[in-house]
Amino acid sequence: MSELSTAAAVFISIGVAFDLIGGLGLIRLPDIYNRLQAATKCVTLGTCFILIGVLIQFGFTSIGVKAILCLAFILMTSPTAAHAISKGSHDFGIKLWEGSVVDKLAEDKSKE
């Protein structure tokens, strides 16, 4: 392995820290929707930062270009997966956490 440049090290460190915060959120937050909030956002951004670090380290070689493609795929698929899980769990009948303020979707569903 060639020497890790400073900029790449900084980017990857930020990414790894965001990943860890996402994992912590997955443990700490109370219900499924809040966990999705923390997990998908933090982990997606963290992995994006890791891939940007790889791109900075190698430049536009075959590794760097594949890192860009990977980043684009993750940015397209991860929010869609989060949306699909949240819709699925609302249909599955998971209630919101008891500290929640409002649930317009359940109100509109019961009206139909």
């Binding site: 397209m76 869609t80 949306h83």
Partner: peptide, 8 residues
Amino acid sequence: MSLISKTI
């Protein structure tokens, strides 16, 4: 599935 899933 929903519109978002279909489009993506």
